[in-house]
Design a binder for these strands. Structure first.
Lengths: 224, 224, 224, 224
DNA sequence: TATGAATGAGAGTTCATTCAT
DNA sequence: GATGAATGAACTCTCATTCAT
């Protein structure tokens, strides 16, 4: 549990630089400089530049999956799960914004097994969105033509958050999460008994509380 | 009088490579090889690698703007304009897929005036989305909490198309355009007289016809 | 006699650029641009860049020799010839300043026969200085330890003029020529009957008149 | 504690090549080859080619200034100072011949601050010549029309030494220094009580001794 | 654990020159 | 006489990585 501060610092500045300038445009020397180590020292902590990227992406994906597992109840109804998925995803896009950006933008820099590993994680995660949408359509609670198209639209829309979010923006994170959850419910025409479903219809947990749970889990907190 | 094929070829292969590997990861020598010219010959047609990217992005943005101006009637109602915007945007993401991908992913490779020029075009274009959403909310035809958030969500969702679209996919382009237009109308809860609006309620032009117009305009055709 | 204006223009801008930036630092394209022709057209007028330099240097040396032959009377006494040599040399350094600069600075850019040709001309010319000094020493009219050292000192001192001369300087060209002639006479302790020689003791031609003759000859005038 | 031989070697071969072929005509690869390092290793020791030139020039100028400060007594009479300046300058042109050549020929390859820095040093140094000549004229010990013209003539004449000096020449260095000192005294008509001044009239230090002091100081020796 | 020195490969770009038209 | 297109070779400089210390 004792923080290996140098290793952490390296990963941290790497995420920042990869997010800001892109993987290819970031020189290993820049990372070393920013982390205040020499380039040769850097290589005590990483194997290769690409492996560093892989670690960053894998960690981000695992964190996202961990959070979504903690927050999305698989026994819940499709609308309940959708709201949880969206709030969790959008929340994580903000909490772990730079890593999310990197994960979304730099997969093509990865090759072979590294790439496959990350893509596998992503596919597993996205499958939970697909099944939620499909089940909801079968249940008649979602009115959506093609669940897969809806999933693509929803995920891109949520991933986009990391692209435009600014820390000094006017909107609270929890607020943004709820806006997106609402947009998602609308998008899939979620309704019960002919009446459109709202967030309050599917969950009692306030977005702020959920957001705090995410922060805690993301920080390495144990899932209770 | 016959087209300057070399210059076109260079731009074309550059778009492909930039889209596939990213700007930074693409070597000027790869572009030259793919275009079947020597690197030094390449420099007869371009000034710098960055300027080549700028031209690609500017051209893509201008094409998109040209198409949307041709296809979106500013006197139309907000729902009509939204459907047109979405169908046009999604259509162009597919017609000009690689350039769209590049434009969306590689702005950070641009610096100074080049970057500013492209961002200015993008902002002007996106402003037309914002005003459509705002006006629709004011008219009561859209039920959306914060138009700007909706715009961000909509645009990211539509931009995403270029990321996952495959030429050999099961769905026709016009079909995809309509799916997205439908999702968009749902997302903003477009309704009139308490009843949700469908595409057919706001336009009579079939998506296929519109798509063909886009292809024609994008190919340099004149706007009638 | 009809001026081949393009060829002249090329040589003229080449001299300017070579003088300003040096031969190696001047691109053939810069010459073409400045001469307002395309690079390929340029090659109708020159063989190679090096040959262009050779021509410039040869022309400058020939002009200098022509002038000095016209102005230095071989039957004159050593002091008279020295004054004439210095006035002529310094005058030409100013009249043909850029070419003189190039000739002095860029010989190492020349190779093989080109280099030899220019060096031969220079050696022939300098030999006339040596013989003047040697003869003057033998006659007892110059008091100088080693004529060859004096020649080196004198020539470098005179060549230097092209390095510092500015068109808008405070001193007239003829004035500068006379200052240098006086310095030269002093340097070699020119004297007759125990009394130092002045310019007026060895020539009646005013420097201004001589300068005008130089300008005329340098412009291609015939030697009468 | 033993000298950083690689860095020294690089500077040393760079001076040789720059002197021989000129800055622009010297490829960074040639320097690397001659210094027996790879081009990329070279860049551990230098920032850019231009900065390497700047360092060479600055070091040469500083060395010259250091020597002249050690050797020229500011309380001495103008003729004494002139002799010291000339002997020192000519001596250094030979001791540090290649660097002197480079410093004199390649300033135009420098830009911006680099150029300004070197020119400032040169101007400061040359000012000491001007003041010596001016003071000598005021004292009546030099008979020279315009001190500034004399300074230009003297400096160019002395700088020239590096251009023609050959190690295997017939003349000892100290001898050359004295020849030039004598020429300088004559050039400015240095006299006292109507009789021309000779070196022996102004200094008792033999040129050989002074030359040895210069070598010692130039090698980094301390000024006592 | 830390790093200065080292490097082969390759980056983007420019060079002087040629040639078909 | 003029030029747009073309190019092989070379340019300065940076890359990710290694290794002896």
């Amino acid at each position: 549990m004792r923080g290996d501060s140098t290793a952490e610092r390296i990963k941290s500045v790497a995420v920042q630089l990869f997010a800001q300038k892109g993987f290819e445009a970031t020189a290993i020397r820049e990372i070393a400089d920013a982390a205040q180590v020499s380039t040769s020292s850097l290589y005590h902590y990483i194997d290769t530049k690409e492996e560093l990227l892989t670690e960053i992406m894998t960690a981000a994906m695992l964190k996202l999956i961990k959070c979504s597992l903690a927050v999305v109840d698989p026994t819940d109804s499709p609308p309940g799960r959708l709201v949880a998925l969206v709030r969790c995803h959008v929340g994580m896009q903000i909490i772990d914004r730079l890593a999310a950006l990197v994960t979304d933008n730099e997969i093509r820099a990865l090759h072979g097994d590294d790439r496959a590993k990350v893509l596998k994680l992503r596919d597993e995660y996205e499958e939970r969105w697909t099944s939620t949408l499909t089940e909801g359509k079968e249940d008649g609670v979602f009115d959506v033509a093609v669940p897969k198209v809806a999933r693509l639209a929803l995920l891109e829309m949520c991933n986009g958050v990391a692209r435009w979010y600014k820390d000094d923006g006017p909107m609270a994170v929890a607020e943004i999460c709820d806006h997106f959850a609402t947009l998602a419910l609308s998008m899939v025409n979620a309704q019960r008994d002919g009446r459109p479903l709202r967030i309050a219809d599917v969950t009692r947990e306030p977005s702020v509380a959920l957001y705090e749970r995410l922060v805690h889990i993301a920080k390495g907190g144990v899932i209770e």
